[in-house]
Design a protein around this nucleic acid. Structure first.
Lengths: 101, 101
DNA sequence: CGTGTAAGGAATTCTGACACG
DNA sequence: CGTGTAAGGAATTCTGACACG
């Protein structure tokens, strides 16, 4: 739990190269609380390989139309797509059948 | 042999933070053939964690007064300090006693 | 030989904002 | 909501060179 994989040493330009995500997106996902880069003394963001993996997952989810809000829960709960979908579906069904109109 | 440790993703500023070496020194050791960073498309140097470890070893050797040339052999031959010193000593003795005149 | 530094340019990163939808 | 973009400034990186020793 403190391997090279977790050291925050990669600048945003390289993260962009590695993930294909625009810098705008990368910064936005931080703003939304999905990733937490560190900063150099002068404010430049530094990411870890773990952050890069998370970003790849985020990219997949976003392609499926999942919103950042849900992805955030996802990351926190460590649930996979299928689980989340089941839950969303169940939620919808509950809303549909149980809500006292 | 292609783990995170070997991926070249760290810019020279971060390498400086991590090793304490000046950027001048870091570039010089490359010029001398001790390290081999990759480059981004636009020419910025990228280092790996392995490079950083090598740089730390170089720093130690330099403090002991070892020249870049010798350090280069060292890295190539994967010999440790003591071995090298024995060899240097033997070389000096040879030079002293065997040289005609 | 090894390293510092000033020089000038090019590329990077940052923030806050406007745009669209 | 998620993302692009133009804006302006500050910090980064690069190369080739001069300096000292």
């Amino acid at each position: 739990m403190h391997s090279y994989k977790d050291k925050k040493v990669i600048t945003i330009g390289i993260v962009h190269e590695l993930t294909g995500l625009s810098e705008r997106k990368i910064r936005y996902y931080e703003e939304r609380g999905l990733i937490f880069p560190e900063r150099t003394r002068r404010g430049t963001r530094k990411y870890s390989f773990t952050d890069i993996e998370i970003l790849m997952k985020i990219a997949d989810k976003r392609e499926e139309g999942v919103q950042t809000n849900e992805i955030k829960q996802d990351i926190h709960n460590k649930k996979n797509n299928i689980d989340v979908r089941k839950e969303m579906l169940r939620g919808q069904l509950n809303a549909h059948f149980k809500r006292p109109h």
